[in-house]
Simulated assay, not measured.
Amino acid sequence: MTLVAVPAEVTSAAPPPTVRRRRWRRLVSPVVILALWEAAAQAGLISAEKLPAPSVVLRTGWRLAADGTLGHHLFDSLTRAALGLLIGGSLALVLGSLAGLLRVGDDAIDPPVQIARMLPHLALVPLLIIWVGIGESMKITLVALGAFFPLYFNVYAGIRDIDERLVELARTYGLGTWARLRHVVLPGAMPSLFLGLRLAIGAAWLSLVVGEQTNTQNGIGFLMMEAREFSQTDVVLLGLFIYGALGLLSDVLLRVAERRVLSWRRGLQAT
């Protein structure tokens, strides 16, 4: 038995044409910024040594991609980000669920997490080097820490914000514990879960940028640090563009998944 019936036409309806056009309009401002940047660089208003034109950065990326350098470093960065996000995200889901669902879990788990969140995880790099060394473990741990806290707090808040009357109603209708979790708790916490995932992915990329600039021999961060030594500003900008593109792509994919999973939700639309 389900508590809320969702009409089939709501879940299967495609976005109207106006919504699709609005999505394309979101690309206008970035394109305009790049065009102005290119024009200023070509006119000599911007120093080519300090801020190369986007076309120069694009040619550098094409050259590094053609000789395999970019693909090698990109694969290493993606591997670190995926492992760190998997470890930190899994811990956040488990601990956030236990703290949100069980009183003993709340008493035992939430206070230490609240204390730890006051410590900026990027400032723990010297301590992590002492604990786990300067190899891959430190970088993956840093990404896991960055992903853990946003997801944990959103899972915890999502569960605690569920209306208790819905749980009581499900219990009145005879739903067992697992059925209540499936039909009431999980759908109710899902919006906060997706918000936590978006924040966690952003924090993971930020942590990866810092981690890859600490005694690394591969990855996009290493490519940027090596380019800094030789004053190759175009390569440094290329690395920043790649980090930004990866973050944007992951956010877009998560938005698509969110719209599909939460197709029953209708929130306020911007006008």
Rank of each mutant, 00 (worst) to 15 (best):
P7G: 01
E9T: 13
E9P: 06
T11H: 08
A13Q: 07
A14Q: 08
A14I: 06
P16E: 07
T18G: 04
R20N: 01
R21F: 12
S29H: 00
P30I: 01
P30F: 02
V32D: 04
E38C: 01
E38V: 03
E38N: 09
A41G: 13
A43F: 11
G44H: 11
V57T: 14
L58R: 10
L58I: 15
G61M: 15
A65K: 02
A65F: 15
G68P: 12
L70A: 05
G71A: 11
L74R: 05
F75K: 05
S77F: 02
L78D: 00
L78T: 06
R80N: 04
A82Y: 14
L83A: 14
L83W: 14
L85N: 11
L86P: 01
L86W: 01
L86Q: 02
G88F: 04
G89N: 04
L93M: 10
V94E: 07
L95M: 15
A99M: 03
L102N: 01
R103K: 07
V104I: 14
G105M: 04
A108I: 14
A108G: 07
I109E: 05
P112Q: 07
P112Y: 08
P112L: 04
Q114H: 06
I115A: 13
L122Y: 01
V125C: 04
L127W: 01
L128C: 08
L128R: 10
I130E: 07
I130F: 11
G135A: 00
E136D: 14
K139I: 08
I140H: 09
I140K: 00
T141C: 12
L145P: 03
F149W: 04
L151Y: 00
F153K: 02
N154V: 12
I159N: 02
R160T: 11
I162W: 02
D163L: 06
E164I: 12
V167G: 03
E168F: 04
L169R: 11
A170E: 04
R171L: 12
L175N: 00
L181F: 12
H183V: 13
V185R: 03
L186G: 00
L186V: 15
G188K: 09
G188L: 01
P191E: 10
S192E: 10
L193D: 07
L193E: 07
L195R: 12
L195T: 15
G196V: 11
L197Y: 02
L199K: 08
A204T: 09
W205L: 15
S207H: 05
S207K: 02
V209F: 09
E212Y: 08
N215I: 12
N215M: 13
T216K: 09
N218I: 03
N218A: 15
I220W: 04
I220N: 10
G221M: 05
F222M: 12
L223F: 00
E226G: 14
E226C: 09
E226P: 05
A227R: 05
A227W: 02
R228H: 05
R228A: 15
E229Q: 15
Q232Y: 03
Q232F: 02
D234R: 01
D234Q: 14
L237D: 04
A245I: 03
G247P: 06
D251L: 11
L254R: 06
L254Q: 10
V256F: 06
A257S: 12
A257N: 00
S263L: 10
W264E: 04
R265K: 13
R266H: 13
G267S: 15
G267Y: 12
A270L: 10
